[in-house]
Design a protein around this nucleic acid. Structure first.
Lengths: 352, 352
DNA sequence: GTGCATGATATGAACGTTCACAGGGCCTAG
DNA sequence: CTAGGCCCTGTGAACGTTCATATCATGCAC
């Protein structure tokens, strides 16, 4: 029979620790109890200054870090946010994702949390993957992005009451911790930008996919057109292959538009090619605008005027809402819309 | 039996989330012991078929999942791979990252692991962040990418003996679990591709940053040029601003090169612009090749011939090496070089 | 000097799981 | 019919931490 580990005996033996430094080791070395060491980390104000200094010095010296699993098991908090990565379409990869993730990692890190990437296993739905996370108590909260209006994951999470937040909008009518870009307003601003540069005939080239954010951009365009008293046509493509042809068609309407508004930076190459085919010079004869400020838009000739998403502020807001859900048990009542920043580059110049 | 938990009296206390279904609950419901339920999950062969079926049915029905923290605490395995995200340069964002991450998440997921994104806190070095991960036993293994030759993280990890793997190469002379693309060979293949299309005068436009993978590409270019008996010049840029000017300069050497090899897709826009400025048509008068097969290369006019990185195979190899380190305690002796796939698109055509 | 309030430190218990091992049932062979 | 072996199942313990609470020290007022 193995004797249970007594708390006050020889410190001579343990030179080799296959499992690492434990709180007990530090306590023994400092001549205090486990709880005191625990307090030194979790509630420093509860210690006398001299004790605190002695213990923290020893913690540093011995390289002690609380075992995350043990801490989680006891306290129930993981300091982890699970993020279900949206499945990437190889033909239209969400290059945005890396920027958003980067911002999320930073924002979560500042709050003491880390991001765990969760992906449904083969034959598993996204909701089932989330159920795994919740049931196994892998994370304190869940982050979703790229959700559709009636995403089953949102319903499921809402039902369970598990803390979650969404980048994008969810169905209205119940408290939701979502954060989104005000795409409509951003598009209105883009139209306003064109109007202020003297453009009066503006065409819209959009993607026909039924994605909420695309529809918001489209709606914003229409509002902007009305508000600024502009005229123009709209056209939609199903895939990138059609962009050049459809854009050329738009440019041949009469009267010819002097500006072309795209609902996504991805269409920019095609629009530029169409302009060239029509003998137009982008930035001179034709203004072009995009959406998202993807990295390569700066490389286009001329650089593309587009809308930058405030990724860091989005991430901060999401983290803050997530933590509110975790700590108060109640999600925020309403979503949050953040403004996008139109970035004026030389694809838009004053109409001469 | 539960202690009276008065939550209304303690407004400061965060609401405690109810604990879920435990192994004990399932065991009681099934009329077996904890261990039997545990075996049903971890060692199904140890159960009689009828018992197994009964228990698994109940596990399913009650929605039981082993608590990850408890499991980790006891068994010492977290089923998590920590990945330190390389800091992104906003001017030259590693658009590759999202593809690589995607592949890693998939590969790790197939092996039953998840990816945890770790980022140094403010004022913390990358190595210190890794120390946190190791000391707090947050992950079973660590994945690094974008390492330089003398990256201190690699040295540190090597010292600790903690399982890790690297996407990219590390200093030779000790066992290393790295996986990398054979950039040199891929570049040789690109030169061969150009040679087979009749090109004899080929120029190289590279980036001067001291990044190992760029130097491998450069070396491969030189080898390829010698092997296929081609001639040409090389030039390097510090930033994207210089690309057009330097490319035009290369195109004006005499005799004029018929092909332009870029060490990265990022330079493609500038190369195309330079060609246009020189009155050359890419894919007709001038062949252009890139490296990395970034998503937007397909959108260029004409689409860019480039080198696709076998991200999924890289990820699979990294995961397999990581797990080998974890399970056998010994890292693989040598690194692994995987071939890149040159993708022929219409920016390269047979020289007429 | 005594009693009390205040705050710092110590102790036992519990979180939910897996490990090590003990015990028991069933089948087969003698 | 019984002994023996072989799986299968059950029990206590342990992982390392934090919670709840007991204990101790200190200082102050009377």
């Amino acid at each position: 029979m193995a004797a249970p580990r007594t708390e006050e005996d020889n410190p001579s033996m343990p030179a080799q620790r296959p499992r690492g430094v434990s709180i007990q080791d530090v306590a023994r070395a400092a001549g205090v109890s486990r709880q005191t060491v625990s307090n030194a980390i979790n509630a420093p104000h509860k210690l006398r200054p001299d004790t605190l200094e002695r213990v923290t010095a020893l913690i540093e010296e011995m390289g002690y870090r609380p075992d995350q699993s043990a801490r989680s098991l006891r306290s129930g908090t993981r300091r982890i946010i699970a993020y279900t990565t949206p499945e990437t379409d190889p033909d239209n990869p969400n290059a945005l994702m890396s920027g958003f993730l980067e911002a999320m990692v930073a924002a979560a890190g500042d709050a003491g949390y880390r991001i765990l990437l969760v992906r449904p296993r083969a034959g598993q739905s996204k909701a089932q993957a989330l159920e795994d996370v919740i049931a196994a108590r892998t994370a304190d909260a869940i982050l979703l992005s790229d959700v559709l209006e009636d995403d089953p994951c949102v319903d499921y999470l809402h039902e369970t009451g598990f803390p979650f937040a969404v980048f994008g909008r969810t169905r209205p009518g119940r408290p939701q911790a979502w954060v989104d870009v005000d795409s409509a307003q951003a598009m209105i601003d883009v139209v306003g930008l064109l109007a202020s540069h003297g453009h009066r005939r503006v065409a819209y080239l959009g993607t026909s996919a039924a994605l909420p954010w695309l529809r918001h951009r489209e709606a914003g365009f229409r509002i902007g057109m009305r508000r600024f008293g502009l005229t123009g046509h709209e056209a939609f493509v199903d895939s990138l292959d059609q962009v050049v042809a459809v854009a050329r068609d738009l440019l041949n309407r009469s009267p010819r538009p002097s500006a072309l508004v795209l609902d996504d930076d991805w269409l920019a190459h095609g629009a530029y090619a169409a302009a060239q085919a029509e003998g137009l010079t982008v930035g001179v004869d034709l203004a072009v605008t995009g959406f998202n400020d993807m990295p390569y838009t700066r490389l286009l000739q001329p650089p593309l005027t587009t809308v930058r998403l405030p990724l860091r502020r989005i991430a901060d807001a999401l983290v803050s809402r997530l933590l509110q859900s975790v700590e108060e048990g109640e999600p925020p009542e309403a979503g949050l819309l953040l403004a996008g920043d139109p970035v004026l580059r030389t694809s838009v110049t004053t109409l001469g």
